[in-house]
Design a protein around this nucleic acid. Sequence first.
DNA 1: TTGATTTGTTAGCTATATCTAACATTATAT
DNA 2: ATATAATGTTAGATATAGCTAACAAATCAA
Lengths: 147, 147
Amino acid sequence: MDLTNSQEEYLKTIYILKNTKNEIRVTEIANKLGKTKASVNNAINSLKQEKLINYEPYGQIELTKEGESLARKIVEANDIVKLFLIEILGSTDENAENEAKAIKTVLSDDTLNKLARYTHKELGLSSLDCGYDINNQRCIECARRNV
Amino acid sequence: MDLTNSQEEYLKTIYILKNTKNEIRVTEIANKLGKTKASVNNAINSLKQEKLINYEPYGQIELTKEGESLARKIVEANDIVKLFLIEILGSTDENAENEAKAIKTVLSDDTLNKLARYTHKELGLSSLDCGYDINNQRCIECARRNV
DNA sequence: TTGATTTGTTAGCTATATCTAACATTATAT
DNA sequence: ATATAATGTTAGATATAGCTAACAAATCAA
């Protein structure tokens, strides 16, 4: 049961907002993604059906354990691609942000790991391999640089 | 009037088949893409509406000038990404083929050019810049390597 | 040359993902 | 405490992209 790009986008946004605010609103998600509240409502109901979030009408949006771990993975995939686009190719932040979002959804775990390790190596963040693994934990260096 | 991913995929396939066979059949496209003939029929009608191909029921599929140039651009974008995945990241051919297809549709021209130049430089195909431009012509080195 | 096979088309269905408009609920301010 | 504003939901529409099943046209073989 793979998520659609759209579902990934919503899940990622929920995860990111959760890390800044204690309360997430449908309207906020809608504004952030440039969608209508109705669309967000559809989306969160589909995520609920996948058991990635808990939600009752007019209630709080909460990530389930599974939802949280999947969201983190999505965010990190995003970060890997962004790191490459900015630091290796020299893209602008804004451009990288937009493209990373789209790119990361189509990459396999294997390619993401390869890309992470390549980028880290090129940037001298480790001699050969930073040990990054998309299914495991975020690389310390990436976290420090916040990319 | 940007093409959808689906339309790009069909256009690319038509372009590639055109370069191997003189006659393209709906069934052939369907087999190649793993879609039904009905779906292909829909798709070619939408490409016709965009004036990217000429087609009359039961007739020959022909790329228009615009369709041909757009298709070439799509194929080349594919090649750039594939070159990077195979030669820089060390992906397998099969994996690269699948991922490149998906990735290239989401990259901007600017990023594609940056990626092409970076990859070429890394591979020593030119000292700094091979002059590749997605809107212009295929790089000679890429053509030679057939990637 | 006509019957069978292949190829192509059409109609109608499904699912996703969006929207608008109308309505319902909750929160806020006075 | 209640009117207003903000927020959330629902219903119904649209568009894309796929499917199956039935049909039509073209090709091929005997």
